[in-house]
Amino acid sequence: MNKIALKVDDRDNVATIFAEGVADGTQVEIRDKKGQREVVTVKGAVPYGHKIAVRDIQPGEHIMKYGESIGGASCPIVKGEYVHIHNMKALRGRGDL
């Protein structure tokens, strides 16, 4: 069985992997709510429940999940790459923005 990543909303540029043992080069299947499937190669070791980019993302671009912004990209992110606090930042609750 393929390792699965779930994309919640059409506007999302990340999907959440619900599989263990995903390492650099692992192929995962991104599924959306319409049943569309796309196999991508993961860049980075991604723990269970963590996210990957479903397309290339430019620095400063919003990271989108649930069809809403969950922060901004702090560096260029390529399709399939692990997305977490090392390459995205919260835009709320900071005090400096």
Binding site: T16, Y48, E68, G71, H84, I85, R92, G93
Partner: peptide, 19 residues
């Protein structure tokens, strides 16, 4: 916020946790 446990669980920002 998010807590260390939330971050280990894959939540990257307060916005993601909130949504």
């Amino acid at each position: 916020q998010p807590t260390p446990g939330n971050i280990a669980g894959g939540l990257s920002s307060i916005e993601e946790k909130s949504l």
